[in-house]
Design a protein around this nucleic acid. Structure first.
Length: 360
DNA sequence: CAAATTTGACCACT
DNA sequence: AGTGGTCAAATTTG
């Protein structure tokens, strides 16, 4: 089974599930007097994004997906553990989808690759010391002057394209309006094992300018890797615990799975509860990854509602980057309204990125 | 000397 | 025909 197809299938299901959930929420907002226009607008944006991502995966969209600055793409990093109706996913459904998908895309494989855009800002004066790349090793293979663009566009592919058949590429385009901003368009996801947080030796003009850059939001590929690490080895930083109301942050982490981790690595403690969740009256008392492969966390709130939530804010200790994911609230009983999240989820830096399961 | 970048040519798409 | 994306030979870099 092709890894990319599987990934796309999961992403598609997740996008559609999210679309349904956000539509439900929007309907509730319409019937609520407390609902604000901004909230409704945000939900509409999420619904639109879900449809756009879904069409893109099905190769019917055709346009590059621009991730909103405050709402990075929630696709790709998510591996749905439930189907649209909340029941466990069916392999038969998946197979029929893939058969169809391969039929319509067999000659357009490149087009069907997931694409997303990020903006990277250079802040030389701030002296920001962060990673100078997105964790992957890229080789420049082209540069092109683009019509009506001040600056040329650079083309990069994964260094390990031939060694590991990794077809991820990215394009780097300096912004006309703000020369300190670079638009980076990623195509395809990495299936190589060589992700690293050390900066490669920069030689191109763009890469020189990436020194001392601030990155926000971080790359989806990076997110993928972080989540892959997360699946196998999870540790939560409790640094911010004292900043929150102890009564509202009564969390304990208990892993609900037994495979893929050693006892020493089962460090599950809550660090911080998202304000949205507290504000909406939900105070989860139990959070844990549902399966080693899943990015979803089961949540039981104090009001006896159960559901699944994805990690919302992910903090990586080495890179000092924060990944922000849309919380996905697929429910097991009644819906949890509003995003819930974990903040400053810290990964064990000693974890080796060597789980072959994700690269088969 | 191997690996990475540069750059003109080629190709696909519209 | 124009444009953007990729290839590959030439060149540079470490």
């Amino acid at each position: 089974m092709d890894c990319a197809s599987n990934w796309e299938y999961e992403t598609l299901i997740n996008e559609l599930t999210q679309g349904i959930e956000h539509t439900k929420q929007l309907r509730e907002h319409f019937h609520s007097t407390a609902s604000t226009f901004e909230n409704q607008e945000l939900l509409l944006q999420k619904i639109f994004s879900s449809y756009e991502q879904s069409l893109l995966i099905l190769n019917w969209g055709g346009s590059t997906v621009q991730s909103p600055p405050a709402l990075p793409p929630s696709t790709g990093v998510i591996e749905s553990s439930v189907s649209i109706d909340g029941s466990p996913k069916s392999d038969d459904k998946k197979r029929s989808f893939q058969d169809h998908h391969e039929l319509i895309n067999i000659s357009k494989k490149r087009k069907s690759q997931p694409t997303w855009t990020e903006q990277v800002k250079v802040s030389a004066e701030s002296g920001f010391e962060g990673p100078t790349d997105d964790g992957y090793s890229w080789r420049k293979y082209g540069q092109k002057d683009i019509l009506r663009a001040k600056y040329p566009r650079s083309y990069y592919r994964c260094t390990y394209r031939h060694m590991q058949n990794c077809w991820a590429t990215k394009q780097v385009q300096r912004s006309d309006d703000d020369p300190t901003v670079f638009d980076i368009t990623y195509r395809g996801t990495h299936n190589c094992h060589h992700a690293t947080y050390s900066a490669p030796q920069p030689t191109s003009p763009e890469k020189h300018e990436f020194k001392n850059q601030a990155v926000y939001p971080t790359g989806q590929q990076y997110s993928n890797q972080v989540l892959m690490n997360l699946r196998a080895n999870l540790r939560v930083n409790t640094n911010d615990l004292d900043k929150n109301d102890p009564a509202a942050c009564h969390f304990s982490f208990v892993p609900t799975f037994s495979s893929g981790m050693t006892d020493d690595n089962r460090h599950f403690q809550i660090s911080h509860v998202d304000d949205n969740l507290i504000g909406s009256g939900y105070s989860p008392s139990f959070v844990s990854p549902t399966t080693p492969e899943s990015n979803y966390f089961s949540v039981s709130s104090s009001s006896q509602m159960n559901g699944y939530g994805m990690v919302h804010n992910l903090h990586h200790s080495e890179s000092d980057l924060t990944d922000i994911f849309s919380a996905n609230t697929s429910t097991t009983s009644s819906p949890i309204v509003g995003d819930f999240s974990l903040d400053h989820l810290e990964l064990d830096p000693n974890f080796l990125f060597d789980n072959p399961k994700f690269f088969s």
